[in-house]
């Protein structure tokens, strides 16, 4: 097992009592004979952003699905903010504070932006099963939803049906929806896939502005985003964590270079930090 601690020696270490929001140990996912996730562990402290990178087919999405409760595991333990959630189903984990965004945008496509986020707020703070309206309570929910939408910068698209939004805007709605649930840990599954450079920049700024009471794990292929946002990185290959640590450490790790490029000469720099 190769545990990963999301601490970065180049940055002043967080207080020793920085609570761990997520502790994963020995997580294993098997599809029949194929082991997609092989005894993976990680620890995520409050306020940290952790990136998960690796070649295609490395098991990153399977890991997310297992963490979110959408995929059955063959072993392992998941503890969220001190509470064991290994046996919980997807809805229960979301209720406990572990939410995810989807690789292929999964929103309530026939509903407006406002309604999409309202669903999240209602679930967290309201009474989603109340069969009659109540003016004040409902207005509070709407205001909270609008606040979340403003935070992601979509205030001018409140009533637009989500199906009419651009890809980048839909990603923003997803973040608004996810934030409206006041989560503890958010799993971002390839959030900038398909985005233009401008949209990616905007999105990265949004992630940076998330409250420090949360923590996030981000699957990303865009290494610019990874190096901008991540406090620490895990590299996954063939279901195993083959390297972990600060971006600098991961960049120079030979095992990582091997995994990405096969046996190349090995001396060419793999990750160039692009100057902005």
């Amino acid at each position: 097992m190769n545990p990963v601690t999301a601490t970065d020696p180049s940055v002043p270490a967080p207080a020793a009592s920085a609570p761990l929001l997520l502790e994963v140990e020995g997580l294993t996912v098997r599809y029949g004979a194929l082991t997609a996730v092989d005894s993976v562990g990680m620890r995520l402290a409050v306020g940290r952003r952790h990136a998960l990178i690796g070649p295609n087919g490395a098991g990153k999405s399977s890991l997310f699905a297992a963490l979110a409760g959408a995929q059955r595991t063959a072993g392992g333990q998941i503890v969220l903010d001190g509470q064991e959630i290994t046996g919980h189903d997807e809805a229960q984990r979301a209720k406990a504070g572990l939410v995810r965004t989807y690789q292929h945008s999964n929103l309530f496509s026939g509903l407006s932006v406002l309604d999409n986020v309202r669903v999240g707020v209602e679930r967290t703070e309201g009474q989603p099963l109340r069969p009659w309206p109540r003016r004040r309570a409902d207005r509070r929910i709407v205001e909270a939803a609008i606040e979340s939408i403003e935070r992601v910068g979509l205030a001018d698209r409140l009533n637009a049906p989500v199906s009419a939004l651009s890809h980048g805007e839909r990603r923003q709605v997803e973040v608004a929806l996810v934030l409206a649930c006041h989560p503890k840990v958010v799993l971002f599954d390839e959030p900038t896939a398909g985005m233009s450079a401008a949209e990616t920049h905007h999105f990265a700024a949004l992630i940076e502005s998330l409250p420090d009471t949360m923590a996030a794990i981000i699957i990303e292929h865009d290494l610019d985003v990874v190096f901008r946002l991540a406090h620490s990185i895990s590299v996954l290959a063939a279901g195993k964590v083959i390297a972990s640590g600060t971006p600098a450490q991961v960049r120079d790790d030979p095992a990582v270079q091997e995994a990405y490029l096969g046996s190349g000469r090995g001396d060419e720099p793999l990750f160039e930090e692009v100057s902005r």
Binding site: E90, A91, G110, L129, P133, I141
Partner: peptide
């Protein structure tokens, strides 16, 4: 028009998404 109605429309649009927010 109630919160239940919103949940019902959410079920129609994407049951998986609704479950993913904990409902």
């Amino acid at each position: 028009k109630s919160p239940l109605g919103l949940s019902m429309r959410a079920v129609r649009e994407s049951p998986t998404r609704l479950r993913a927010v904990g409902q």
